[in-house]
């Protein structure tokens, strides 16, 4: 186990370096170079030259990369000339709100898909099983933004019970004070996760349902639902925990779209606006931070899996 943890840590560091390299390479594809991207289209030649000298962009490429890493490690993610604010500050104010949205969506989809997956496994090939599978399939095939549009049409326009816009506000407290407005964005994003989770949960539960320990538990006369809850659930939940870590990049992509549909004031909306305004420092900084968070997330998920499921062997 200790060896595994060390190996995973080293791997993660290598992956993080890889991510910074990818972004670093992209910086050099920026139209007009990093100086133009940071200073904006109206910068003069002299300003660009002095920016390049000050940030080392006139030095050899490998040294530029080391300088870039140094800046990252010291927390300098760049400066958004568009917002006239440092990228780190923008991140700090927007990431918590997106984390709330993503966290709620994960929670809702887990609460629904775990029992549903077990139900599907127990009632395999029944009408209910097929119905849930079909629903998950359509959920997978449906673009996130279209699902959001349909929810707005349904619950904000034809049957106006919910607001069509996400809660507005600078802080998490302000967002949470309008729970009604949170329902549609969370439901949209949860649909994406649900399509993924329910399929995994179903097959994982089916695999465990035929194991001897389930038969033994039943033979001992333990009540049926208790067998499912106490024996089947903990044993088949492992892959889902792994999947939470693995699915984070996809879910964050979904969050960008969801935030765009509902005008949710989080990091996805900010990133999208940055893309429309070609605010490169903001996009680059966000990409690095989010990717590093993803690597950390999947590391934590793997370690959790190893702790929860002692059957997992890593060698």
């Amino acid at each position: 186990m200790a060896g595994y943890v060390v190996r995973r840590l080293v791997q993660s560091v290598v992956v993080v370096i890889g991510v910074t390299l990818i972004v670093f390479v992209l910086i050099h594809f920026l139209p007009g170079g990093p100086a133009r991207a940071t200073l904006g289209p109206r910068a003069t030649r002299a300003e660009i030259l002095s920016f390049n000298v000050a940030n080392g962009y006139n030095r050899p490429i490998p040294i530029q990369y080391v300088l870039y890493l140094k800046r990252l490690v010291s927390g300098n993610l760049g400066f958004s000339y568009h917002y006239n604010e440092s990228v780190a500050a923008l991140l700090a104010s927007n990431v918590p709100k997106t984390a709330l949205l993503v966290g709620l969506a994960y929670g809702v989809s887990l609460i629904i898909s775990i029992p549903l997956g077990i139900f599907q496994a127990v009632r395999r090939n029944s009408v209910g099983d097929y119905a849930v599978t079909a629903f998950a399939f359509v959920g997978y095939a449906m673009p996130t933004f279209w699902a959001g549009m349909l929810l707005i049409l349904g619950f904000a326009i034809y049957w106006p019970v919910l607001p069509s816009e996400a809660p507005q506000g600078a802080t998490i407290g302000a967002i949470l004070s309008q729970p009604n407005a949170l329902i549609l964005p969370v439901a949209t994003l949860a649909l994406v996760n649900f399509a993924m989770f329910s399929r995994f949960m179903r097959s994982s539960a089916i695999e465990n349902l035929v194991q001897d320990y389930i038969r033994t538990a039943r033979a001992k006369g333990i009540k049926s639902h208790w067998v499912l809850f106490r024996h089947l659930l903990p044993n088949s939940i492992g892959p889902i925990i792994s999947l939470i870590g693995l699915s984070l990049p996809v879910v964050l992509s979904g969050a960008v779209v969801t935030e765009a549909v509902f005008n949710f004031p989080g990091m996805g909306l900010l990133f999208w606006n940055a893309a429309l305004k070609q605010d490169y420092p903001l996009m680059m900084g966000f990409t690095v931070v989010i990717s590093v968070a993803t690597v950390a997330g999947s590391l934590v998920a793997d370690l959790l899996y190893a702790i929860i499921d002692p059957r997992v062997r890593y060698d």
């Binding site: 791997q11 290598v14 992956v15 993080v16 370096i17 890889g18 991510v19 390299l21 990818i22 992209l26 594809f29 920026l30 139209p31 984070l248 990049p249 996809v250 964050l252 992509s253 960008v256 779209v257 990133f271 999208w272 893309a275 070609q278 490169y280 996009m283 680059m284 966000f286 990409t287 989010i290 990717s291 590093v292 993803t294 690597v295 999947s298």
Partner: peptide, 23 residues
């Protein structure tokens, strides 16, 4: 494989948005 892992860590839509603004 670490290169693959690094690409996996970047949310696909962010990378696509970034590239769509550059090229």
């Amino acid at each position: 494989m670490r290169v693959v892992d690094a690409f996996y860590a970047i949310p696909p839509l962010l990378l696509m948005l970034l590239m769509a603004t550059i090229f």
